[in-house]
């Protein structure tokens, strides 16, 4: 039996959670069992562009927690850390299409890209635009023909902005272009203080020696790009924020969206204190915070650690950010 986990058969965990989600969001979400996807059950404005995302499970509240008014029309969950299938994605795409087309918000992973691409190909007459999210600076290795940067916490902002634009009645190419603008102006860096433990397993996905931090991790329990010594939180947060701000080429007077994201078991006290340090670092650069999210939005099961995401903001994007949203995990 697995350590510190509340699980039945690990294979059933995702399905049981989806059942629980549907039960806990009665009248707001519906879980289509086969093929599996979660779709809005509220009074959806007709004839709007559909906004769809999906990916492996284990990142909750992403993506299912963001289905609802002003954000996603549906989310397609795979098994833990595994892409959903093309058939699931195709079925969800058909379910949300009103004839105005569907935006696929896809985190950049080989399996996700492959299955979303295939789903788009086999969805025939439905017009589909794909927004690829690839914000993870740790994987910015510029290898020719490589898989490119991974998609991580910036996906929340992409889903929020696309969802708002679609809700306003924007057309397919406008919604997609906005999503690409967010994704293209987003960078993230993450660190792990303790690895995650897969459902049903009793040992974490990797060992960290006492006094070591895994720097540049992704959201699938893999090791990062290097180990650094444990340091006071403010130093660790600076090590995340600096490279991100540099890579975006932020200048005095620029404004950003900030996402300080917990990877699973890092406490809200720590995330809030980390956010305070991010604002100090940005202040010192003359960069202002337009809007922010501080919480565990894109998790890697129960990994301890956090990520810092900065996204260049402009007036139009801030307006869309402020539009109302009503989902299980984000509401304003």
């Amino acid at each position: 039996m697995a350590a510190h986990q509340l699980v039945n058969d690990p294979q059933e965990l995702v399905g049981e959670a989806l059942e629980g989600l549907e039960l806990s969001q009665r009248g707001r979400l519906r879980w289509n069992r086969d093929p599996s996807f979660v779709i809005r059950a509220d009074d959806r404005r007709p004839y709007k562009v559909g906004v769809l995302s999906g990916g492996g499970s284990g990142h909750e509240p992403l993506h299912t927690g963001f289905v609802g008014y002003g954000m996603l029309d549906a989310a397609v969950p795979g098994a833990v850390f595994a892409s959903p299938t093309a058939i699931q994605i195709q079925a969800a795409t058909e379910a949300v299409d009103d004839g105005r087309g569907v935006v696929h918000v896809v985190k950049n992973y080989t399996g996700d890209v492959l299955n979303f691409t295939i789903a788009a190909e086999i969805s025939g007459a439905i017009r589909i635009e794909t927004v690829l999210v690839d914000d993870d600076l740790a994987t910015d290795t510029s290898v020719e023909g490589g898989p490119g940067r991974r998609g991580t916490a910036a996906v929340v902002a992409v889903e929020k902005i696309c969802g708002a634009a679609a809700e306003r009645g924007a057309d397919l190419s406008t919604v997609a272009a906005l999503g690409r603008r967010v994704a293209g102006n987003a960078r993230t860096m993450s660190l792990a203080l303790r690895a995650c433990t897969h459902p049903g397993q009793s040992v974490p996905s990797f060992d960290l020696e006492v006094g070591q931090v895994e720097f540049g991790v992704g959201i699938h329990g893999e090791r990062g790009v290097r180990k650094i010594p444990v340091a006071p939180a403010d130093e660790l947060v600076a090590a995340l924020t600096g490279p991100v701000a540099d890579d975006l080429g932020l200048n005095r007077g620029d404004a950003v969206f900030v996402i300080v994201n917990g990877l699973g078991s890092t406490h809200q006290l720590e995330l809030l204190a980390a956010y305070r340090q991010v604002t100090r670092l940005l202040d010192a650069r003359g960069v202002t915070v337009a809007r922010q999210l501080v919480g565990s939005y894109v998790t890697a099961l129960d990994m301890a650690g956090c990520s810092v995401t900065l996204i260049r903001a402009d007036e139009e994007l801030v307006g869309l950010w402020d539009d109302p949203v009503r989902t299980a995990a984000l509401t304003w």
């Binding site: 595994a82 959903p84 299938t85 093309a86 058939i87 080989t110 399996g111 299955n115 295939i118 190909e121």
Partner: peptide
């Protein structure tokens, strides 16, 4: 094809699915 696309275990699944398609 549908069986491979529905299952998609790993990289080979969707590729075989599209090949048989």
């Amino acid at each position: 094809s549908t069986a491979f696309l529905e299952h998609s275990g790993g990289t080979s699944g969707p590729l075989f699915g599209m090949w048989f398609r």
